[in-house]
C-alpha cells in the first residue's frame, strides 16, 4: 500500500504540516544566504500569528541589516532613528497600552548607539518586548567591530583581532539588562538548529504572553551568525558560532519571572 503512494497523494493542501506564515510578505528577504535574521523574523511573525494579533501589534524597525524589517513583516511597523527603537516603543506603548509593541534590533543598534535608550527603557520597566539579534559585528556597513565583537575576533576595523587592551571588552548587554529591576523575562537563544529554533520560538511566545499580562520589559536575545562579515560559509559560520560565540554568550534563560536564574 505504501508503494502506491505517489507524490500527488502527499502534496495536497490538507497534508500541509509546515508553511511560511502569512504574516511574512512575499518579498525576497534582503539578508545574506544563511543569515539568522530571516529565521528570527519568521519566528516573531509566527508567534504573532498564533496570538491572532496581526491587527493589534506594532513593531519598531531598527537601523542596521534589519532596517527593512517593515517590508517583510505584514503588521504595523514604525522605523526608528538609529538606536532609538526602545524610546519610540515606550511612546507607542504609553499612548496605546492595549497594543502589543516590540522592537527588533541588532547589536550595533541596541548595544552601541542605542545603549542609553535600551538601558533606560529596561530600567523604567516599560511594558514592551525587545528582540535583540546579536552577531558580534556591524553587518550592514561592512563587518566593522561592534561592542559585542569577541576578544581576538577579526573584523574589518580589527584586522588582527580585537585587542582588549586598546579596544576594550565586549559588552554583555543582556546580562547587564537582566540585573535591572524593571525587566521581567530575559533570555538568550539561537536559531541555527531545529531544536534551537523551537526553543527560541517558545521564548518569543513567552515574552509576548508576559507583555500581555503587563509584567514589564521582556528581552529575547538571539545569537546569530554573520557569514558575510565573518567571511565564512553559512554552515561554517554556524559551527564557528557554536565554538566561539556560545562560550562567551551562553544560551538559556537569564531572568525568569523577575528573578535572576543565572
Amino acid at each position: 500500500m505504501a508503494e502506491t503512494l505517489t507524490k500527488q497523494d502527499i502534496i495536497k493542501d490538507e497534508n500541509i504540516v509546515y508553511k511560511k506564515t502569512g504574516l511574512m510578505t512575499d518579498k525576497v528577504l534582503s539578508y545574506c544566504p544563511g543569515c539568522g535574521h530571516g529565521t528570527t523574523h519568521r519566528l516573531v511573525m509566527e508567534v504573532i500569528d498564533e496570538l491572532g494579533a496581526q491587527a493589534n501589534t506594532i513593531g519598531i524597525a531598527p537601523v542596521g541589516c534589519s532596517v527593512l524589517a517593515y517590508e517583510f513583516m505584514d503588521i504595523d511597523m514604525q522605523e526608528a532613528a538609529h538606536g532609538r527603537a526602545p524610546a519610540l516603543a515606550t511612546a507607542i506603548k504609553r499612548l496605546m497600552p492595549d497594543k502589543l509593541v516590540f522592537t527588533y534590533q541588532g547589536d550595533g543598534d541596541l548595544a552601541a548607539i542605542g545603549t542609553g535608550e535600551t538601558i533606560h527603557a529596561a530600567n523604567r520597566g516599560e511594558n514592551i518586548t525587545i528582540i535583540f539579534v546579536n552577531n558580534g559585528i556591524y553587518g550592514m556597513t561592512g563587518g566593522q567591530m561592534a561592542p559585542t565583537t569577541l576578544p581576538g575576533m577579526k573584523s574589518s576595523t580589527s584586522p588582527y583581532g580585537r585587542d582588549i587592551k586598546t579596544m576594550g571588552y565586549p559588552l554583555k548587554i543582556t546580562e547587564l539588562i537582566a540585573r535591572l529591576p524593571g525587566t521581567y523575562f530575559v533570555t538568550r537563544q539561537a536559531v541555527h538548529t531545529p531544536a534551537n529554533v523551537r526553543k527560541a520560538k517558545k521564548a518569543i511566545r513567552k515574552a509576548f504572553d508576559l507583555q500581555k499580562q503587563n509584567k514589564g520589559l521582556t528581552f529575547v536575545e538571539i545569537v546569530s551568525n554573520c557569514n558575510s562579515g565573518w567571511k565564512m560559509t553559512p554552515v561554517k559560520a554556524n559551527q564557528w558560532m557554536v565554538d566561539n560565540m556560545f562560550p562567551f554568550y551562553p544560551l538559556g534563560d537569564i531572568k525568569v519571572d523577575g528573578e535572576l536564574v543565572k
Partner: peptide
Amino acid sequence: CTNCAIVCPDGVITVYRV
C-alpha cells in the same frame, strides 16, 4: 519532520505529511 523548513532563513520550504 519539518526540520528543514523551520531552520530555513528564507522560509522557502512547505512540508507535507501523510
